[in-house]
Design a protein around this nucleic acid. Structure first.
Lengths: 173, 173
DNA sequence: CGCCCCATGTAAGCAGTTACATGATTAC
DNA sequence: GTAATCATGTAACTGCTTACATGGGGCG
């Protein structure tokens, strides 16, 4: 399971609340390991029981209290030994490809409209990533920032490959 | 859920046994919706109960008997109306990106070795796809074959984007 | 007055994985 | 003889989704 390790990886870059983990993650883990708030709070609880994280309650006036989570030494150890294991590549699931595979049953026009729409969605995601690259990853990077940048670059190349595929597919239809 | 529809999509291209669905799917659905044999047999059972597929038992000498599944008219209807719904893009889960995100905790050399290894895995997948393209998708294609070809092209562009990412990441490390 | 943001949780159910189970034939 | 291929299933468990639940503050 990887949500546990995704959370530990984020916490290795700095302390966060459950709410932060779910939301403020632009250009970060949310783009390659999405999770609902329910799932995140559940995993934080488990990680706490395992001793991989600790939290301190922080009272706030005019806002609900919150729990700020911090990764422990044991947590860092666990994350490191997990990250060192050789990766087994999992083929990603892709619903659109199933629809395309069934595309011979549909109106070509309907399919083309859908491809246009999907292309625009990927284009705006790409624009978003490029903006982050421009504003937040210029010049020399520390190892910590480089790790984050590499994941952003993956997002950029991924979105580009989608846009390219949409374009060539539209030509072939 | 999509495994049901993945199976229906394959059956819309021709009759198959459960065994076929799990195995002989090179350049097909297995590359974007992998499933274990247990899962496939279970879904076939459910699809049968729903009336979306039918099977005839086929006795074989010197081989175990098998069930050849065929999509029904109701099944085609279900597949079509599902495929016509606008797609909601799901961000794919990617374990490697979590490891990269935690990369600042690892030896740079270890990370580089891992990236080399991953690149080779994607390269061989790409070679496989390119071979299929060359041998099986030359010349003018029927709508049915075109649908299959587009999914293959997606695989090709996907693997290329991985190789490119590995190369640029290795330079940055 | 209603909607969005902040902030955290429980419970039921479904999709998918891992483990267990069987058995004949063919190829080396 | 032993490994791989063909062929189909059940049972237990885990990860994740969907639905339900609460409640104050700020903004228009």
């Amino acid at each position: 399971m990887s949500l546990k390790h995704a959370i530990l990886a984020v916490l290795s870059h700095g302390d966060r609340t459950g709410y932060d983990l779910v939301h403020k993650m632009d250009g970060s883990v949310a783009n390659f390991w999405p999770a609902s708030h329910q799932q995140v709070y559940l995993e934080l609880k488990k990680l706490d029981e395992l001793g991989f994280v600790q939290y301190r309650e922080k009272e706030q006036k005019s806002r609900p209290d919150k729990k700020v989570y911090k990764i422990t030494k044991t947590g860092i150890g666990e994350l490191k030994s997990w990250a060192e294991e050789p990766l087994v590549i999992a083929t990603p699931k892709d619903e659109l490809m199933i629809k395309i595979f069934a595309g011979h049953l549909l109106e070509p026009k309907h399919l083309a409209n859908e491809l246009h729409r999907v292309r625009e969605l990927h284009q705006s995601k790409l624009d978003e990533y490029l903006a982050i690259e421009k504003t937040r990853f210029q010049g020399k990077l520390t190892p910590d920032r480089l790790a984050q940048y590499l994941t952003l670059r993956r997002g950029i190349l991924f979105e580009k490959s989608w846009i390219e595929w949409c374009n060539e597919s539209l030509k072939r239809l």
